[in-house]
Design a protein around this nucleic acid. Structure first.
Length: 220
DNA sequence: GCGACAG
DNA sequence: ATCTTGTCGC
């Protein structure tokens, strides 16, 4: 079973920023699994009220990409959405879903950013640190700047923020808009991109997030 | 002051 | 995130 690190959930934005700065040094870049046999996709969907939500985790076998475990949780958003503070809204229900898994995945594939974040501590870093599981972020909307990568599957270009490289714009399919990959915890950028390509043999997004996404919209 | 701003 | 028609392509 997944053990979640002792942590606190702030009620104001200023406190939330302080929590990020406190947890940021705990991000590690070593300790990757020798081989990824299972990968978890995580996603959250909201109802009309925008505070009632469904969180889901789907664990897929790698490289078969078959679903080996999953969990869903219904709940309420306790923190308003704010750019840079995304994790305080989505991490609580996602952690609740992760606790329900009977299979501990080798890596968490998060919907959003990892180090490609204003304080280098996006959702993927947050979930990675709190569970101490390897984690990566796969986003659809850029937070940093990058030159368009080549048009072929596998082509990538560095994402930069404040002059430093924080991730990769990765083309998962020919001529399709790239996804934004960044390290969350216990992993390298190269390994993260390699994994995303392995998880996205046919569509733009990894099968992990596609499965989790399908799960949250059929659970409402 | 103005624009930008993961999901 | 969510609100939504038609359209192009496999």
């Amino acid at each position: 079973m997944i053990e979640v690190r002792e942590h606190e959930w702030p009620s104001t934005r200023a406190e939330a920023v302080a929590v990020q700065q406190r947890l940021r040094p705990l991000v590690r870049f070593d300790g990757q699994p020798a081989e990824v046999r299972t990968a978890a996709g995580l996603d959250v969907a909201y109802d009309e009220s925008s505070d009632e939500l469904v969180a889901a985790v789907a664990v897929l076998d790698v490289p078969a990409l078959s679903v080996v475990d999953s969990a869903t949780v219904r709940g309420r958003a306790e923190f308003p959405y704010a750019p840079g503070l995304f994790a305080f809204r989505e991490a609580p229900p996602l952690l609740a879903a992760l606790r329900q898994l009977s299979v501990v995945p080798d890596v968490l594939v998060c919907d959003g950013q990892g180090l490609a974040h204003p304080r280098r501590f996006g959702l993927a870093c947050h979930l990675g640190v709190l569970t101490d599981l390897p984690a990566i972020g796969v986003g659809k909307t850029p937070m940093g700047r990058f030159d368009p990568p080549g048009q072929r599957r596998g082509d990538r270009s560095p994402i930069r923020m404040d002059g430093e490289e924080v991730g990769s714009a990765l083309r998962t399919q020919h001529g399709v808009k790239p996804v934004l990959v960044s390290v969350g915890h216990r992993c390298t950028l190269d390994a993260a991109c390699g994994l995303v390509l392995e998880l996205a043999p046919r569509y733009r997004l990894p099968e992990t997030t596609r499965t989790a996404d399908h799960l949250v919209r059929t659970t409402r």
